[in-house]
């Protein structure tokens, strides 16, 4: 398999913001004392009059963005995932989602790969919080180039969007034709396969592709889907894959109780039921450690996906 280049999703976000700022004068950007880390600072350098740093006051930031949107702007609010979801849940619910305002929430440093800062900073329940909100669109780009495409698409779309990004430099795996036309609500098939489907989101997409390579050695031909939009979910692609392959594994850097995998499971149960296994964090908080150590300890490695696939195959008597 080709060696992937590593790139940062936050840099791609900053780049996209600057492009948007140049194209559209109605774009405003809000930060909460983390503008350097989340790269809204790059936008601030280009368009200081359209960037607002609210300080460590995320609730104020979110509702102010609702106000911007109500007054005709497209507002981007960005800070760490931990501070821009749970802490401001009511502000998002009441002042953004309910009135369906044009606010884009871009969360960085999501997931356990945050590392050393520990559980207080490792947001692993944001997909659950955001996906239960009516009117909310939820996107988890798989790498840096897809981040840029997703941010541009979100700006184009009218209404609330949540975009989840990570901290680390991650493999660029979407540089393939199948992923070039990013469309909200459309999953992309990254690899064809007949025996089982691996559905990944975010950093787990690249791991699914690696797992598929590994499974090939065991004569298992795995299809890989990049589920970059969690909501609305691409049910058509999912159901088709379930029909064609007869088994499914999902992988996400999130609490497995209520993330992407559970959304996939619900779709399948109601439409076309196949043996399935979900890879993710088993309903526990994280802790301090290196990203790699944590991915291993909390069950998020390529091996975990491969094992889950074998398990599904066994249940199908193969």
């Amino acid at each position: 398999m080709k060696k992937w280049e590593l790139k940062n999703q936050r840099d791609a976000f900053g780049e996209a913001l600057v492009e948007l700022g140049e194209q559209r004068s109605d774009i405003v950007v809000a930060s909460a004392d983390l503008s350097c880390s989340v790269k809204t600072g790059v936008f601030a350098e280009h368009f200081p009059e359209r960037h607002f740093n609210f300080g460590i006051a995320e609730q104020n930031m979110i509702s102010a963005c609702a106000g911007f949107a109500a007054a005709g702007k497209t507002a981007f609010a960005s800070t760490f995932a931990i501070f821009v979801t749970g802490r401001v849940y009511d502000q998002i619910r009441q002042s953004v989602a309910y009135p369906k305002l044009d606010v884009k929430i871009v969360a960085t440093h999501a997931g356990i790969t945050v590392g050393g800062d520990g559980a207080t900073h490792q947001m692993i329940e944001d997909l659950a919080l955001m996906r239960v909100l009516p009117n909310m669109t939820v996107i988890v780009p798989a790498d840096a180039p897809e981040t840029k495409r997703a941010v541009m698409a979100a700006a184009e779309y009218k209404g609330p969007v949540y975009i989840r990004l990570g901290r680390a430099n991650i493999p660029v795996c979407t540089d393939i034709p199948e992923c070039q036309d990013f469309e909200i609500g459309k999953a992309s098939i990254m690899r064809e396969g007949a025996d089982i489907t691996l559905v990944g989101t975010g950093i787990m997409v690249a791991k699914c592709l690696e797992a598929a390579e590994d499974l090939k050695k065991h004569k298992i031909d795995a299809k890989v889907i990049n589920m970059s939009t969690i909501k609305p979910m691409d049910e058509k692609t999912l159901i088709k894959a379930a029909r064609e392959t007869g088994g499914m594994v999902t992988a996400e850097e999130h609490n497995v109780m209520v993330g992407m995998g559970s959304a996939v499971a619900m779709t399948l149960v109601e439409n076309f039921h196949v043996p399935m296994k979900r890879v993710g964090i088993r309903d526990s908080f994280g802790e301090s450690g290196t990203s790699d150590e944590l991915m291993e300890k909390y069950g998020l490695t390529v091996d975990h996906i491969v094992d889950a696939a074998h398990d599904v195959m066994k249940r199908r008597g193969r």
């Binding site: 931990i82 501070f83 802490r87 050393g116 800062d117 520990g118 559980a119 207080t120 900073h121 802790e287 301090s288 450690g289 290196t290 150590e293 944590l294 300890k297």
Partner: peptide
């Protein structure tokens, strides 16, 4: 501190560290 399995988390954890009175960081 900050190493995997440590009682000394990146931010204070009242369940892990003796003497820490509150889990903070947010």
């Amino acid at each position: 501190i900050r190493k995997i399995g440590s009682r000394l988390q990146g931010h204070p954890d009242m369940r892990k560290t003796p003497g820490v009175e509150a889990s903070t960081g947010s």
